[in-house]
Design a binder for these strands. Structure first.
Lengths: 210, 210
DNA sequence: CGCGCTTTTGACCAAAATCAAGCACTGTGG
DNA sequence: CCACAGTGCTTGATTTTGGTCAAAAGCGCG
């Protein structure tokens, strides 16, 4: 992924967003797409009654691009969680790059598969796991992604997601997410506080996933 | 999509599968991928206790390819529902084709977005809709896809999915899917029988989606 | 200190799961 | 032709999980 993104970063525009800012709006055709340099964001859909479903989280270094690299209007929004600094790309230019290199194409294919797998995982979680399994699954996924980026290891790590984000991503209410986290904390599976999280018993968490 | 697939069909191998046959197995690296000519199939994940989650349905004319065009082991299975005849592609050859044409690349990008949207829709359904909303959403999605392929119009259409498929795709039990379909039938929203389905009140179904 | 945001807790309720049985259709063999 | 086995559909009684609504407690910050 980085071999794919790095050469393109150089000459592109850098953009900053506040926390809780809208990066891409549902129904628009994005002319620019972004790569997140630093900060967290999420991709979500909305129901007419105001409820929302978070589809995926974007961590520092992730490509918004692949999600929003569309010719047609996109069917989701992207909103920052923390302040975000990002790198803007122009779509058509991107296409030319891709066509020009088989390696680049292959990297792009890999990104595509990672995203597909993440979506599939969430569908499995939502369809066939109870609250604790869902929370464990999402927590482990995010932790693993952070580890791969060097943003977490064993021990506590920076974690700006609120329980409300878990609720909106996992199809639960904040009340129930709270009860679930409470149970996990009291069993010694995790520790957390405002802005941080620690996975204390990875094995037990994985056992929750069957 | 057809402009993308048609030129490749010509010289490729045609393969047949029985109903309920495994086309691709979770954990394998597919050397060949397929396009469904005729018949229905689904893509699914499994839990260790034997429960399954259907991730998506493949209708006649759909590309399994895009889902399974992977270098790494795939994390899902593909299984036929009805007998399927399909067209086999070799992966590396496919890559060369893609790199050779910007239009092809663009088509491939479109397929990617369609799939992403379908997955997102399912996540929204599972996370934020009740049983009736989920059933309505899946039913409308499949009907619309069939219409686009010329396999359905207004009135009854061929529909080989069993209620068990709905249950496994929507995170419900067959008992509850049955109650839900029963309620929809008695309200005059749909009619159905073995092997067919009819959408009687599309507007009311859409209203269920908020 | 007091305000806003998040987390925590509690009492009560509803949707869907579970478990279990019975029904209807289809194909098959006697 | 009919018994019957298999498959999928339908239904009921009961339990579970998570939702709803509401209030309180904790914390960072101007």
């Amino acid at each position: 992924m980085s071999s794919f993104a790095r050469p393109l970063f150089a000459a592109r525009r850098k953009v900053s967003f506040d926390a809780n800012a809208l990066m891409l709006r549902e129904g628009e055709v994005p002319q620019l797409t972004y790569t997140v340099f630093s900060g967290w964001a999420h991709r979500s859909k909305h129901l007419s009654d105001g409820r929302r479903q978070i589809l995926s989280f974007l961590l520092p270094g992730d490509l918004v691009l692949a999600k929003a690299f569309a010719v047609a209007p996109i069917k989701f929004s992207v909103r920052t969680i923390t302040p975000v600094s990002a790198c803007a790309f122009e779509r058509e230019e991107m296409f030319r790059f891709l066509g020009g290199s088989l390696d680049l194409l292959r990297s792009c294919g890999n990104i595509y598969f990672t995203e597909l797998d993440q979506g599939d995982q969430r569908i499995l979680d939502l369809g066939r796991r109870n609250a604790m399994g869902r929370v464990a699954s999402l927590l482990l996924e995010i932790h693993q992604r952070l580890v791969r980026k060097g943003l977490a290891a064993d021990g506590p790590f920076e974690f700006p997601l609120r329980q409300e984000h878990f609720a909106d991503a996992l199809g639960l209410t904040t009340a129930h997410v709270n009860r679930t986290f409470g149970a996990m904390k009291s069993k010694g599976l995790v520790k957390y506080g405002p802005g941080w999280m620690e996975i204390c018993d990875r094995v037990a968490l994985e056992r929750l996933l069957g």
